[in-house]
Design a protein around this nucleic acid. Structure first.
Length: 108
DNA sequence: TTGATGACCTGAG
DNA sequence: ACTCAGGCCATCA
């Protein structure tokens, strides 16, 4: 049987990212769960390697603890920009952390 | 193919 | 609350 494995994890991730509404954020864990995998790291890996802020709002993805994590190379400067973008969307960021109980979006 | 890396997660001290 | 160590998965050299 040819398992219809995930053609490309990246594509799935991008699709989910695009489906994130404005003013909401998601965690790597949710994405991995939505894809049915446990490679949380792989998610971030793909996002980091394929930074497409024009098509995929990767800044809407945070850690399960609510921390920002990283952005465009895990540089602190970029992280700051990520936070600003989130705030602009209407997301509440406190001490570099996001209110998951308020802006956590889940894939149905 | 093997080995190393990473924007992670969970649990224990 | 914070820090340390182990684990899981996909991608790159």
């Amino acid at each position: 049987m040819e398992k219809i494995k995930q053609r490309n994890l990246a594509e799935q991730v991008y699709k989910l990212c695009r489906q994130i509404p404005q003013g909401k954020v998601t965690t790597y864990r949710e994405i991995a769960a939505a894809l049915g995998t446990k490679g949380y790291q792989a998610i971030g890996q793909v996002l980091k390697k394929n930074p497409d802020p024009g098509t995929v709002p990767c800044f809407k993805i945070v850690k399960s603890t609510g921390e920002i994590g990283g952005y465009c190379g895990s540089d602190l400067k970029n992280i700051s920009m990520k936070i600003e973008k989130l705030q602009k969307e209407g997301i509440v960021v406190r001490e570099g952390k996001v209110d998951l109980g308020k802006c956590l979006f889940r894939f149905e």
